[in-house]
Design a protein around this nucleic acid. Structure first.
Lengths: 341, 341
DNA sequence: TTATAGGGTGGTAGCGATACCAAGAGAAAC
DNA sequence: GTTTCTCTTGGTATCGCTACCACCCTATAA
């Protein structure tokens, strides 16, 4: 019955109202709010008083339309749930906020077509820039980005040909390094549990790194040593058991996701297997958990927070006027050797 | 020297351009895009063709200004990092997206004053509604919400007097129930480790629930059985050790945060203490981890995902025209009895 | 045949801010 | 004292879209 409800506040006060009550022109109010230094002390005080009196909130939608500038950054991650992304998102959010920007967030669920829809939607909202976790994109995404010219940062991997800017580590090098590390420790039969490979360039790269390292170690690149598993504790446990069933001589397992690794570790605890006595366990991504588990777990430390921070800094600089240049920052990674290997 | 860069796409195509190329009026384009059913087949085809030809993206900023309607929901959580919130955020994001809304997210870092600043900022962006995790707010926040009249959902606790709508469980009842549960299992000296209490109504409520249950169990409400600890694995371990130092006879510890509980559990593993033989451990919030740890951990299952989903559904309904009514949904909780108690 | 209705289309006037330019007031230079 | 310059302030024209109303045309009823 009520029909469409009014969407906005009842007492909609606008800048011209404030101007009238302060006895100045709207432009002076606008300036007093955005660039107080260009307005005389007296005017500023009048404006401030009126603003406070009515708890006036400038309408940034109108401001954006008029100035053709927006202060909202769009972010697309595969999953908001995943704590790895959460670390990065937090860092991005903090840097943006410190510079007066906001974050519009969306998750693509690892689907390239959904990414496309989200990019369109965010660009329609006229976000001033984008952060994408993917580094492989639909043609339409690439076209839209090129056409609109918004600054973009890709963060999930180091693309050979970034859309614009990229801040990441090399999934390939990281997986290769950990595998080599295991080899150096003397393990010869090293299994690899990968996250789903479909539409996921990062997983693909990690597997490639694993195989490359095996070759470099002079070990056979046996495809049955590789298992694909969706993330999850049980899945990690399952994967390890299946690997060991196929390869009873397996002496180490490298998990491309930390939850998988911990799941496997718990399974070993349950069975009373010594880690690394019976089998060594290595993980990807330094979840806090891994440092506290018993035994503590060897892993790759990826500076997720730094990725977020630097991505946001690049964007902010660019939005504040830095000249566009293709940047490709490799934040690197670090092998953290612990008790489990 | 490039000065301020242009913020928007170079090839800025607008609705009137599309209209011209399609040989129709701008209004017809607008309608064809938003309410295709009100436009004739022929017109629609002409418009669609032009839209595709230029990959036209309607400017939603202009649309929002004109229609005084926005499709962005603002969300403020204490911390994006925390996986509990992440679950809720994901659910919210999914429901909103399915209905064509977007999410602008910010974190308050548990500070009420920051919440105020963020609420102002989000309202200045003219979000069409708000989701707040806090249930205690500054006066200014309450005033702004009342004045603008945007729909609001509070999710962190069941407030006695909600701003508008609330979807949550009772922190008080949950803590009370778990404490009672421990009493029922025969534990007599039950420690309680709380998260920081400052500016945090949820922590406060949980502690109150703990004390209430103790009283009901006829156990002494000894304040030295309560320890405050910031979240974290080590902090959980520390807290347990300190509690046991003060109370060597401690037979159970109830942790108001799951990470604390797991930290304590790991510490027990490290010392070779039997859980629950030496001390029982109970947790708050059903992190996946708790179901897989060894031993599995008794905890409170809070339907975080459901909280997010129902919050978003309430908002969407209201935004789509449902009449405003104060709603207060108690999603409840569940005690999950596992090996650790 | 004329009246009445109703779907489909277009014209016009904002939405609430900012950009840009013009103009007034003093201060500094001649 | 006049000119020039700088510093503030104000007026006006958008920004790109949608609401609202007017109009036209066809269809059905009287």
């Amino acid at each position: 019955m009520s029909g469409k409800a009014k969407r906005n506040g009842s007492a909609d006060i606008k800048m011209s109202d404030i101007a009238r009550h302060a006895g100045v022109s709207p432009m002076t109010v606008s300036r007093a709010l955005r660039e107080p230094s260009t307005v005389s002390e007296k005017m500023r005080r009048k404006v401030d008083a009126a603003v406070r009196e009515f708890s006036y909130l400038p309408n940034r939608i109108a401001g954006s339309l008029s100035s053709k500038r927006s202060n909202v950054v769009g972010l697309i991650v595969p999953s908001i749930r995943n704590s790895l992304y959460a670390n990065m998102v937090q860092a991005i959010s903090d840097v943006l906020r410190a510079n007066g920007f906001h974050l519009m967030i969306a998750n693509s669920g690892h689907l390239l077509d959904d990414e496309e829809a989200l990019v369109s939607a965010l660009l329609a909202q006229r976000v001033c820039s984008l952060v994408l976790h993917n580094t492989t994109h639909n043609k339409r995404v690439r076209d839209l980005v090129a056409k609109t010219g918004v600054p973009v940062v890709e963060t999930g991997n180091l693309p050979t040909e970034p859309l614009d800017m990229a801040v990441s580590y090399s999934n390939f090098e990281a997986a290769r390094a950990m595998t080599a590390h295991l080899g150096r420790l003397g393990y010869r039969k090293i299994g690899f549990v990968t996250l789903p490979l479909r539409d996921n360039d990062r997983s693909e790269e990690r597997r490639r790194g694993y195989f490359t390292a095996l070759k470099e170690l002079g070990l056979p690149a046996d495809p049955t040593l590789v298992l694909e598993a969706p993330g999850g504790f049980s899945e990690g446990a399952d994967a390890l058991m299946r690997l060991i069933q196929i390869h009873p001589g397996l002496d180490a397992a490298f998990f491309a996701g930390d939850v998988l690794a911990v799941g496997a570790l718990f399974e070993c605890q349950r069975r009373g297997w010594a880690v690394p006595g019976r089998v060594a366990i290595a993980s990807f991504d330094d979840l806090d958990l891994l440092r506290h588990a018993v035994p503590t777990v060897t892993t790759l430390r990826i500076p997720r927070h730094e990725i977020g921070r630097r991505s946001a800094e690049l964007l902010v600089n660019r939005l504040l006027g830095a000249s566009p240049e293709r940047v490709r920052i490799d934040v690197g990674f670090e092998i953290v050797q612990r008790e489990s290997t």
